[in-house]
Amino acid sequence: MATRRALLETAARLFAERGYAGTSVNDMSTRSGRTSGAVYFHYASKEGIALAVVEDAFATWPRLRARYTDRSVPPLDRLVSLSFEIAHALVEDTVVRAGARLWAERDTIDASLPDPFALWTAATTRLLTQARAAGHLAHRVRPAVAAPALVRAFFGLCTLTEALEDRRLVATRLADWWHITLPLFQHDIDSTGVLSRVQAERTASGTVPAPQRVTAGTTARHPTAVP
Protein backbone atom coordinates (compact mmCIF):
# COMPACT_ATOMS: atom_id res chain seq x y z
CA MET A 1 0.00 0.00 0.00
CA ALA A 2 2.84 2.40 0.78
CA THR A 3 4.39 1.89 -2.65
CA ARG A 4 1.04 2.26 -4.39
CA ARG A 5 0.39 5.51 -2.51
CA ALA A 6 3.86 6.85 -3.28
CA LEU A 7 3.37 6.14 -6.97
CA LEU A 8 -0.04 7.84 -6.98
CA GLU A 9 1.41 10.97 -5.34
CA THR A 10 4.35 10.99 -7.76
CA ALA A 11 1.96 10.69 -10.71
CA ALA A 12 -0.20 13.47 -9.25
CA ARG A 13 2.76 15.83 -9.03
CA LEU A 14 3.64 15.15 -12.65
CA PHE A 15 0.05 15.49 -13.86
CA ALA A 16 -0.32 18.76 -11.95
CA GLU A 17 2.90 20.11 -13.47
CA ARG A 18 2.72 18.75 -17.02
CA GLY A 19 -0.82 17.60 -17.66
CA TYR A 20 -1.92 14.19 -18.88
CA ALA A 21 -0.39 14.28 -22.37
CA GLY A 22 2.91 15.61 -21.02
CA THR A 23 3.36 12.78 -18.51
CA SER A 24 4.45 9.23 -19.28
CA VAL A 25 4.80 6.09 -17.20
CA ASN A 26 8.57 6.39 -17.72
CA ASP A 27 8.38 9.86 -16.16
CA MET A 28 6.61 8.37 -13.16
CA SER A 29 9.22 5.65 -12.94
CA THR A 30 12.11 8.11 -13.08
CA ARG A 31 10.56 10.55 -10.59
CA SER A 32 9.61 7.82 -8.12
CA GLY A 33 12.86 5.87 -8.39
CA ARG A 34 10.96 2.69 -9.20
CA THR A 35 10.86 0.61 -12.36
CA SER A 36 8.13 0.88 -14.98
CA GLY A 37 7.28 -2.71 -14.06
CA ALA A 38 6.61 -1.61 -10.50
CA VAL A 39 4.29 1.12 -11.77
CA TYR A 40 2.35 -1.35 -13.93
CA PHE A 41 2.21 -3.85 -11.07
CA HIS A 42 0.13 -1.38 -9.06
CA TYR A 43 -1.68 0.37 -11.92
CA ALA A 44 -2.60 -1.38 -15.16
CA SER A 45 -2.22 1.69 -17.37
CA LYS A 46 -1.58 5.41 -17.46
CA GLU A 47 -5.33 5.90 -17.79
CA GLY A 48 -5.81 3.82 -14.66
CA ILE A 49 -3.39 6.02 -12.74
CA ALA A 50 -5.19 9.16 -13.92
CA LEU A 51 -8.52 7.70 -12.81
CA ALA A 52 -7.06 6.78 -9.41
CA VAL A 53 -5.75 10.34 -8.94
CA VAL A 54 -9.13 11.89 -9.77
CA GLU A 55 -10.98 9.46 -7.50
CA ASP A 56 -8.54 9.82 -4.59
CA ALA A 57 -9.58 13.24 -3.36
CA PHE A 58 -10.94 15.42 -6.13
CA ALA A 59 -14.12 13.49 -6.94
CA THR A 60 -14.77 11.69 -3.65
CA TRP A 61 -13.66 14.29 -1.07
CA PRO A 62 -13.18 11.92 1.89
CA ARG A 63 -12.99 14.87 4.31
CA LEU A 64 -16.15 16.50 3.01
CA ARG A 65 -18.72 14.79 5.20
CA ALA A 66 -17.13 15.74 8.54
CA ARG A 67 -16.89 19.31 7.35
CA TYR A 68 -20.56 19.85 6.58
CA THR A 69 -22.46 17.56 8.98
CA ASP A 70 -21.77 19.35 12.29
CA ARG A 71 -25.28 20.48 13.25
CA SER A 72 -23.93 22.70 16.04
CA VAL A 73 -22.72 25.15 13.36
CA PRO A 74 -25.26 27.20 11.35
CA PRO A 75 -25.72 25.70 7.87
CA LEU A 76 -24.61 28.79 5.94
CA ASP A 77 -21.48 28.99 8.10
CA ARG A 78 -20.79 25.35 7.21
CA LEU A 79 -21.32 26.07 3.53
CA VAL A 80 -18.87 28.97 3.52
CA SER A 81 -16.34 27.06 5.62
CA LEU A 82 -16.60 24.10 3.28
CA SER A 83 -15.91 26.34 0.29
CA PHE A 84 -12.72 27.65 1.88
CA GLU A 85 -11.60 24.11 2.69
CA ILE A 86 -12.13 22.97 -0.90
CA ALA A 87 -10.47 26.12 -2.27
CA HIS A 88 -7.46 25.54 -0.03
CA ALA A 89 -7.16 21.97 -1.33
CA LEU A 90 -7.42 23.15 -4.93
CA VAL A 91 -4.52 25.53 -4.26
CA GLU A 92 -2.26 23.49 -1.98
CA ASP A 93 -3.03 19.75 -2.27
CA THR A 94 -1.06 18.21 -5.14
CA VAL A 95 -3.43 15.27 -5.63
CA VAL A 96 -6.47 17.55 -5.71
CA ARG A 97 -4.73 19.95 -8.10
CA ALA A 98 -3.83 17.04 -10.36
CA GLY A 99 -7.39 15.75 -10.20
CA ALA A 100 -8.73 19.13 -11.27
CA ARG A 101 -6.29 19.36 -14.17
CA LEU A 102 -7.00 15.81 -15.31
CA TRP A 103 -10.73 16.41 -15.19
CA ALA A 104 -10.28 19.54 -17.31
CA GLU A 105 -8.30 17.40 -19.80
CA ARG A 106 -10.75 14.48 -19.63
CA ASP A 107 -11.38 14.47 -23.39
CA THR A 108 -7.76 13.38 -23.92
CA ILE A 109 -7.99 10.46 -21.45
CA ASP A 110 -9.29 7.08 -22.54
CA ALA A 111 -11.15 6.49 -19.30
CA SER A 112 -14.46 7.59 -17.83
CA LEU A 113 -13.65 10.06 -15.07
CA PRO A 114 -16.23 10.59 -12.31
CA ASP A 115 -18.17 13.83 -12.02
CA PRO A 116 -16.32 15.79 -9.31
CA PHE A 117 -19.23 18.18 -8.78
CA ALA A 118 -21.91 15.67 -7.79
CA LEU A 119 -20.84 15.42 -4.14
CA TRP A 120 -20.23 19.17 -3.84
CA THR A 121 -23.67 19.90 -5.27
CA ALA A 122 -25.40 17.37 -3.00
CA ALA A 123 -23.68 18.83 0.07
CA THR A 124 -24.56 22.39 -0.99
CA THR A 125 -28.20 21.43 -1.63
CA ARG A 126 -28.44 19.82 1.79
CA LEU A 127 -26.90 22.82 3.56
CA LEU A 128 -29.18 25.28 1.76
CA THR A 129 -32.18 23.08 2.65
CA GLN A 130 -31.10 23.09 6.30
CA ALA A 131 -30.66 26.87 6.14
CA ARG A 132 -34.21 27.19 4.82
CA ALA A 133 -35.55 25.00 7.64
CA ALA A 134 -33.70 27.16 10.17
CA GLY A 135 -35.16 30.35 8.68
CA HIS A 136 -31.78 31.61 7.46
CA LEU A 137 -32.43 31.38 3.73
CA ALA A 138 -34.28 33.97 1.68
CA HIS A 139 -37.73 32.67 0.69
CA ARG A 140 -37.07 33.14 -3.04
CA VAL A 141 -34.03 30.81 -3.01
CA ARG A 142 -34.71 27.22 -4.08
CA PRO A 143 -31.88 24.97 -2.81
CA ALA A 144 -32.02 22.45 -5.67
CA VAL A 145 -31.73 25.24 -8.24
CA ALA A 146 -29.25 27.43 -6.37
CA ALA A 147 -26.78 24.67 -5.40
CA PRO A 148 -25.52 23.77 -8.92
CA ALA A 149 -25.13 27.46 -9.76
CA LEU A 150 -23.13 28.09 -6.58
CA VAL A 151 -20.83 25.12 -7.16
CA ARG A 152 -20.09 26.07 -10.76
CA ALA A 153 -19.52 29.71 -9.90
CA PHE A 154 -17.20 28.70 -7.05
CA PHE A 155 -15.12 26.39 -9.22
CA GLY A 156 -14.94 28.98 -11.98
CA LEU A 157 -13.76 31.60 -9.49
CA CYS A 158 -10.97 29.32 -8.22
CA THR A 159 -9.89 28.34 -11.72
CA LEU A 160 -9.90 31.84 -13.19
CA THR A 161 -8.18 33.41 -10.17
CA GLU A 162 -5.29 31.00 -10.59
CA ALA A 163 -5.18 31.45 -14.37
CA LEU A 164 -5.47 35.24 -14.45
CA GLU A 165 -3.89 36.34 -11.17
CA ASP A 166 -2.15 34.15 -8.60
CA ARG A 167 -3.38 31.00 -6.90
CA ARG A 168 -2.41 32.48 -3.51
CA LEU A 169 -5.22 34.98 -4.05
CA VAL A 170 -7.95 32.37 -4.24
CA ALA A 171 -9.02 32.67 -0.58
CA THR A 172 -9.16 36.46 -0.83
CA ARG A 173 -11.21 36.38 -4.04
CA LEU A 174 -13.48 33.76 -2.47
CA ALA A 175 -14.13 36.06 0.51
CA ASP A 176 -14.94 38.90 -1.90
CA TRP A 177 -17.33 36.60 -3.77
CA TRP A 178 -19.13 35.55 -0.60
CA HIS A 179 -19.58 39.19 0.42
CA ILE A 180 -21.46 39.67 -2.85
CA THR A 181 -23.27 36.33 -2.87
CA LEU A 182 -24.40 35.78 0.72
CA PRO A 183 -26.76 38.79 0.86
CA LEU A 184 -28.66 37.26 -2.08
CA PHE A 185 -29.22 34.04 -0.11
CA GLN A 186 -29.70 35.17 3.47
CA HIS A 187 -33.07 35.93 5.03
CA ASP A 188 -31.46 38.34 7.49
CA ILE A 189 -28.43 39.74 5.70
CA ASP A 190 -25.26 39.20 7.73
CA SER A 191 -22.48 38.27 5.29
CA THR A 192 -19.80 39.95 7.42
CA GLY A 193 -20.89 37.97 10.48
CA VAL A 194 -20.76 34.64 8.64
CA LEU A 195 -17.35 35.34 7.14
CA SER A 196 -15.96 36.57 10.46
CA ARG A 197 -17.11 33.41 12.24
CA VAL A 198 -15.71 31.18 9.51
CA GLN A 199 -12.38 32.98 9.51
CA ALA A 200 -12.15 32.76 13.30
CA GLU A 201 -12.81 29.00 13.15
CA ARG A 202 -10.24 28.48 10.41
CA THR A 203 -7.63 30.48 12.30
CA ALA A 204 -8.34 28.70 15.58
CA SER A 205 -8.08 25.28 13.95
CA GLY A 206 -4.67 26.16 12.55
CA THR A 207 -5.34 24.01 9.50
CA VAL A 208 -5.84 26.75 6.94
CA PRO A 209 -3.88 30.01 6.59
CA ALA A 210 -5.61 33.35 6.29
CA PRO A 211 -6.32 34.76 2.81
CA GLN A 212 -3.37 36.36 1.07
CA ARG A 213 -2.84 39.77 -0.44
CA VAL A 214 -0.26 39.34 -3.20
CA THR A 215 1.32 42.20 -5.09
CA ALA A 216 1.89 41.46 -8.76
CA GLY A 217 5.45 40.37 -9.45
CA THR A 218 6.22 39.38 -5.86
CA THR A 219 6.34 36.03 -4.12
CA ALA A 220 5.91 37.17 -0.52
CA ARG A 221 2.81 36.13 1.37
CA HIS A 222 1.01 38.69 3.51
CA PRO A 223 -1.75 37.23 5.71
CA THR A 224 -4.77 39.44 6.18
CA ALA A 225 -8.17 39.04 7.74
CA VAL A 226 -11.08 38.21 5.50
CA PRO A 227 -12.32 41.55 4.08
Rank of each mutant, 00 (worst) to 15 (best):
G99I: 09
A118S: 14
P74F: 07
R173A: 10
V226T: 08
L8D: 13
R63K: 15
A52I: 06
A52S: 10
Y40Q: 00
S205W: 00
S196K: 12
L76M: 09
A52C: 14
A122Y: 06
S29R: 05
R168T: 05
R13E: 11
V141A: 12
R168E: 12
Q199K: 06
V214I: 09
Q199I: 11
V145S: 12
R5P: 01
T23V: 13
V208H: 10
G206A: 12
L127I: 01
L113A: 09
T23Y: 01
V96I: 14
S29Q: 07
A147P: 05
V91L: 07
V80F: 00
M28R: 00
Y68M: 10
I109W: 02
Y43W: 03
T159V: 07
A210W: 03
D70H: 08
D27G: 02
A147H: 01
P211N: 00
L157H: 04
E162S: 15
V91C: 12
A133M: 09
I109A: 05
E92V: 14
E17W: 03
E17H: 08
R4D: 00
Y43A: 02
V39H: 00
A57P: 08
E92P: 04
R197W: 09
R63Y: 13
A89G: 06
T161S: 07
F41C: 06
D115M: 13
W103D: 14
L82A: 15
A138F: 09
T125P: 03
R221V: 07
L82Y: 11
A66H: 09
D70V: 14
S29T: 05
L90V: 08
S36A: 06
L14Q: 02
G19M: 10
V80A: 02
E17N: 11
S72L: 08
T215N: 04
A57F: 13
A12C: 08
R152I: 10
P62C: 12
L169A: 09
A59Y: 13
T35Q: 02
T121S: 07
H136Q: 15
Y68N: 10
R34V: 13
P209N: 05
T108Q: 14
T192A: 13
L157K: 03
P183F: 08
V25C: 02
T108G: 04
V25S: 02
P211Y: 00
R142L: 05
F185T: 13
S83P: 11
V214Q: 06
V145F: 11
G217E: 09
G193H: 04
P209F: 00
L195Y: 03
P114T: 10
S81Y: 05
P62W: 11
E55R: 09
Y68S: 06
V39F: 04
A146K: 10
A57M: 08
M28I: 14
T203L: 08
L174S: 05
A220T: 03
L7G: 01
A111L: 04
R202Q: 15
L7Y: 02
I189R: 15
A98K: 04
R18I: 11
R213C: 05
A146R: 15
L195T: 06
D107A: 15
I49H: 01
T203D: 08
L137W: 01
T10M: 10
